[in-house]
Amino acid sequence: MFSIILSTASRYLLPLMLIFSFFLFLRGHNEPGGGFVGGLVAAAAYALYLIANGIEEAKLLLRAEPIKLIALGLFFAIVSTFLSLMTGQDFMTGIWAKNEFPVIGKVGTPLLFDLGVYFLVLGIVLKIIFSLAEEDNK
């Protein structure tokens, strides 16, 4: 199945949904949102692109293997827990930077942990979706 309407629409929807997922990710500490929902929305964006354009195009677009995204997410999460040990505080204590950045806001280890969750969820959902789509084509 190839629909030129869906294919063209997915090309515009993909960046919009990725921006929205990043917005959800940044808002997540004190309001609804966070790394998990952000990752899910980003994965939904890629899933829509996959349905519209086929699995080969989607893999070309992602460039990285989903399993590497999972590893990257776990790496971020682990790094964020060990940073507090280096400063002499307890394990997993949140460390926040003094001054705020524009757009992003306060930066600290919880944000890094959330980034890890974001990549982990994105990687796992994409791994599942790609496996299902490949199984389908056989």
Binding site: L6, M17, F20, V41, A44, A47, L48, I51
Partner: peptide, 14 residues
């Protein structure tokens, strides 16, 4: 609501 709209569209397409 925005998230539900996006996911419902994706679900219908799938």
């Amino acid at each position: 609501g925005i998230i539900v709209a996006l996911l419902a569209f994706l679900g219908t397409v799938a």
